[in-house]
Design a protein around this nucleic acid. Sequence first.
DNA 1: ATGTAGGCGCTACGCCGACAA
DNA 2: TTGTCGGCGTAGCGCCTACAT
Lengths: 381, 381
Amino acid sequence: MEGKKGVVNSELWHACAGPLVSLPNVGSRVVYFPQGHSEQIAASTNKEVDVPSYPSLPPQLICQLHNVTMHADVETDEVYAQMTLQPLTEEEQKDFYLPADLGLPSKQPMNYFCKTLTASDTSTHGGFSVPRRAAEKVFPPLDYTRQPPAQELIARDLHENEWKFRHIFRGQPKRHLLTTGWSVFVSAKRLVAGDSVLFIWNEKNELLLGVRRANRPQTVMPSSVISSDSMHIGLLAAAAHAAATNSPFTVFYNPRASPCEFVIHFTKYVKAVYHTRMSVGMRFRMLFETEESTVRRYMGTITGISDMDSTRWPKSNWRSVKVGWDESTAGERQPRVSLWEIEPLTTFPMYSSPFPVRLKRPWPSGLPLFQGLREDELCME
Amino acid sequence: MEGKKGVVNSELWHACAGPLVSLPNVGSRVVYFPQGHSEQIAASTNKEVDVPSYPSLPPQLICQLHNVTMHADVETDEVYAQMTLQPLTEEEQKDFYLPADLGLPSKQPMNYFCKTLTASDTSTHGGFSVPRRAAEKVFPPLDYTRQPPAQELIARDLHENEWKFRHIFRGQPKRHLLTTGWSVFVSAKRLVAGDSVLFIWNEKNELLLGVRRANRPQTVMPSSVISSDSMHIGLLAAAAHAAATNSPFTVFYNPRASPCEFVIHFTKYVKAVYHTRMSVGMRFRMLFETEESTVRRYMGTITGISDMDSTRWPKSNWRSVKVGWDESTAGERQPRVSLWEIEPLTTFPMYSSPFPVRLKRPWPSGLPLFQGLREDELCME
DNA sequence: ATGTAGGCGCTACGCCGACAA
DNA sequence: TTGTCGGCGTAGCGCCTACAT
């Protein structure tokens, strides 16, 4: 598993990244959105910038994914992925076989739990209160003949550090607790109330331990290295150079920094853009992650379809759908989404049709997405 | 002083930056070296990258400095400067008046001291041992009639946080110590033995407090935002775009990240490049910072003059001088320096001559540095 | 089922001189 | 002059149960 230094346990990475995050397979085709990438940089640096537009850079690049590695920040344990993408020539776009990589949301580990830390969990006054079902599911069973039942747990984090905890079942009423060892973990990881920890009991009978920090309002980036303008220009220039020369380039994808997956499975993209009817007024649903790290669907209505940034990124499909949400719990959900993020609520079958339905409106005719690639050459399952 | 948020105390910033660091004045002319900037990025990210060359970007840009602000990283207290530079058109390069901004090393504060922390200073076992002369110079005088003499000190750091310390003069033999309050400071700033602290007693009778971390071997950058390749391309593209349109761009200068000052006072540059004889075999001296935060001169001999990177940056003056050092204390000093960093040891007067001596070799004739700017138009004091 | 608080033992933090370098 | 140590008193860490939600 640890072939390269800095590459982390895949199971644990996905658990920390959350149930909605999926990474494309190595070798598969993907669509890269500079605009989405730019959005992530803006979210990371907390700066909106006004960079010059890059007319030579199309709003999306069809790429082959040469490499994906999973990493975690040494300081914060924040998970991120490094991807090496190579833009495909028109020839290569034509001449392909498509692995059926739909990028279904990665399966979360079987035996795991995630708990948001309470004030008591993080205070120096005591230990960690383990939810009962969680303890029974992911911790090795206790010897209940002892009084009180207790054992030592050793859990490994993303950096292969081992943490020892005393797991004890006591109190009135009885409960599972982590005592000795817990506070050093909390202070080493600098956890505060509101952050989450997650434990995994994997198939090799190893205990893995991850951390998810609460969304601090300002994740103030150490922008002391390069200006955010230069970052934006850099990403655009790197992509443009790669596109012009069909040479590989590298991006970092930080799934928890901002809700913008800017590298999309090719087939998912094609399905959404070419094989799905979308129109104003249409109802849809979309998956979101809950506080408890599970998924739930929110429903909404399409209120408009238009370019998000018509000057810089004309005819881009990135966040081209304006939506209204049924549950108006503040403005916490994006007012704009991308076609492939939502699932239209229709009665007729969409994907099984042998005759793909070309999107009629509102896209301008002849949208120049896959030059040289005929639609009926697409291999859909 | 605190007009803008994030802008820090100038005195304290300079003390933390060290005696050799000077910032050009706002409004003055400077020379910007993309190559040097690239070097700093490489040092910050610990990655050498192989970026495509940018033939349209000259190895140096003459710019006007529109803005300089001093900052400090919230996490690490690392000082850095943000500069807004505007490349000058040929017309503007001709039509100028030059403020006599030679960028002499900034004067360090009068009453200050800097101490490298010992194991005892940072252990949980005790407080901070204040060097006697330092305490007498920068701390308010103690009332020696009390037994023991003691007082409470309040010092402000770069982020305007206040830290309280008990300052006491006791022991046998007598010594100055900081006791209560010291350990919380050490743990809050995460100081370890080898790091330095510095105190300033300024003219407003305020006590300022700064931190300098030891050069940890690997200052592993959180590169989880943007690839180092994109950073390099970004800096080059941003500079190229600015040069092409004569529009302002922003850079960050981190004086302690790496010994490469990539924004140089214009007059200093002109002096060094056009008005100084340099030849192989010539002796010179150069300033360095000592452990104790003072300057000292090292002597050396020029062993060669050539492009550092002849493919990417032909005819650049950045680190064009190969040197050998008299004291060969390991390879801790750069084997290549730039002309303006060194002071040639000659007997004839150099700067006062009314007829500037054009550098004969090894520069190729007609080096295209200041197109449209005749040398005798330069205004040297 | 689980968050918080009171009780209290004991570790280690932190203040002190004594040395020595 | 100043770094480190042995000495100690005590704050607060951390283990326990009680109680409330």
